Simulated assay, not measured.
Amino acid sequence: MKKLLAFIMIMLVLTACDNSILPKSNSINPTKLTEREEVILSNTSDQAFVFDFNVENSYKKVSVWVEKYEFGKLVGKVNDIGTEVNKSGQIILSVSKLNEAALESIFTLTVSSDGGSASGWGPEKMIEMPSVVTGVNQNENISLECNEALASIIYSKQSGISSMSPELYKDVDGQIDEIAQHDVVYLLKAKFD
């Protein structure tokens, strides 16, 4: 009997551990890319961010956009797309230099779900800056209800800048002082309805 109870306890612990690594429903997670996928993305873009989402049937649409801040002031959206979703899918942001001499980049957003996809792109005039730092929200199972930032790109005339703090991704409005320390900050965001 003791062996049976011990076996049941071990199985419960293992089952609980296995469930903890599964994506929660109604969440977004950074995608763990293979080395091959990373090489392909680095060949086609200067920066790329990929996220998986898992939603319940009550969510039918997603809006994805990139906010642009200059010295802490929100100056607009670089790109904004919306599409229907079904249970799971991916969100991808890639940034590619269109013209090195003109300092112009293309921000491309793609949402893929249930075999379909929607994409949008927009050109963005850049100012030459020596420092570029990217970051990704590392929270496990990012909640859909919290309006968290998914990724950031920081451009600065100062060298030696660091990526955004984990608190920024959770509370952009509350961390505006951190954003204000940089020349230009782009934040990827998503909203599910």
Rank of each mutant, 00 (worst) to 15 (best):
K3S: 11
I161Y: 03
I40T: 06
S88Y: 06
E124Y: 12
K189D: 03
M129W: 01
N86Q: 10
E35V: 10
T108G: 02
E38K: 14
E145P: 00
S159Q: 13
V136W: 04
G82P: 08
N29Q: 13
I8F: 13
S112F: 03
S42Y: 00
D18H: 11
S119C: 01
E67N: 15
E37T: 12
G120I: 03
N79K: 10
V13L: 15
N86K: 15
Q90Y: 12
S156P: 13
V39E: 12
Y186D: 03
K170M: 07
E35D: 12
F53V: 06
I142W: 06
L74T: 03
D18Y: 14
N141A: 07
Y59C: 04
N139W: 03
S25I: 09
V95E: 12
F49C: 01
V184L: 02
S20K: 04
I92M: 14
G160A: 12
A180W: 02
R36K: 15
N86T: 09
N79E: 15
A190C: 09
T108P: 01
I106W: 04
C146F: 09
E67T: 09
K73D: 14
H182W: 08
V75S: 04
R36V: 13
S25P: 00
F107D: 07
Q158G: 02
M9H: 06
V132A: 07
I91Y: 13
F192P: 10
F7I: 15
N43S: 10
G174T: 00
D183P: 00
N26I: 03
Y169P: 04
S156V: 09
Y169K: 04
D177P: 03
V50Y: 06
D52N: 15
V111A: 02
N79P: 01
N57A: 13
T34F: 05
M9K: 12
E140K: 09
